[in-house]
């Protein structure tokens, strides 16, 4: 165990790569989710079909298969990616497909009267989305997005199979050099667990912010002393 703990810089470097993959992957996933999720709520049947195809295709394949395809198959037809880029692309496109379904569902879940009101107020389509529909939809999206973020972080462990030096690959190296299999894997399991818990706290914070923004929960300044006491007791 001490051998493993004393080589913590190696593991920390791996953890940093895992965190980077999570950040870049989730940024790409977020963009894809909004683009294709909003397309799926469009009026044009062509656009909706495009959204459907993206979602069905990328939700249907496994991340690892996608990653192998980018990494091993596409270079043979001339598209060569750096491993890191292939990994982020596979993670982001895959999770983005799930995210697009979340976005579509959330926008659809905003009460119809809200949409009708924006039309009655003569808002432009962009204004309707930005001012009325999205702020309410985002509050609905946050909890499932939180789950997807953790899925993405966990999914990033498979990049070790295309030789990216993330936490998982560092653990493999450490296992080979120290031979203490059980200890190494226990340590990195705990590290993954900690990263996941931190991500979860971050999403909870965003959820609270979104609720305050929509006036569904009193802000810090608006809270009466009684509320604060109740909050502390909880």
């Amino acid at each position: 165990m001490s051998d493993v703990l004393s080589s913590y810089p190696l593991l920390l470097r791996g953890a940093w790569v895992t965190i980077q993959l999570t950040l870049y992957g989730s940024a790409l996933a977020l963009v894809m989710a909004f683009v294709f999720g909003l397309i799926a709520t469009a009026r044009s049947a062509w656009l909706r079909a495009l959204g459907r195809i993206y979602v069905e295709f990328f939700r249907g394949t496994a991340t690892l298969v996608l990653m192998y395809w980018f990494f091993y198959a596409l270079p043979l037809v001339g598209a060569r990616f750096a491993p890191m880029f292939a990994a982020v692309l596979a993670l982001g496109l895959n999770v983005g497909a799930y995210g697009a379904e979340v976005v579509r569902g959330a926008v659809k879940a905003v009460p119809k009267a809200q949409y009708e009101a924006t039309v009655a107020l003569n808002m432009r389509p962009g204004q309707r989305l930005r001012r009325v529909l999205l702020p309410q939809a985002i509050a609905l999206m946050l909890p499932p997005f939180g789950n997807l973020l953790i899925e993405l972080m966990k999914g990033s462990a498979v990049v070790s199979l295309i030789s990216i030096a993330d936490l998982m690959l560092r653990a493999q190296q450490l296992r080979q050099s120290t031979g203490q299999t059980t200890a190494v894997f226990l340590v990195i399991l705990v590290m993954y667990f900690v990263i996941a818990q931190v991500l979860q706290l971050f999403v909870r914070y965003l959820e609270r912010r979104a609720d305050i923004m929509l006036g569904r929960r009193p802000g810090r300044s608006a809270r009466s002393p009684l509320d604060t006491r109740l909050g502390a007791a909880k």
């Binding site: 953790i150 966990k154 999914g155 990033s156 462990a157 498979v158 070790s160 199979l161 998982m168 653990a171 493999q172 296992r175 299999t181 059980t182 894997f185 226990l186 990195i188 399991l189 993954y192 667990f193 996941a196 818990q197 979860q200």
Partner: peptide
């Protein structure tokens, strides 16, 4: 919660190498 928030791949390796031990 622990099982759910750690990667399947790591768990597989753990079982694969730790169980024989």
């Amino acid at each position: 919660e622990f099982i759910r928030s750690t990667p399947l791949l790591v768990q597989l390796f753990f079982l694969f190498f730790a169980l024989p031990a």
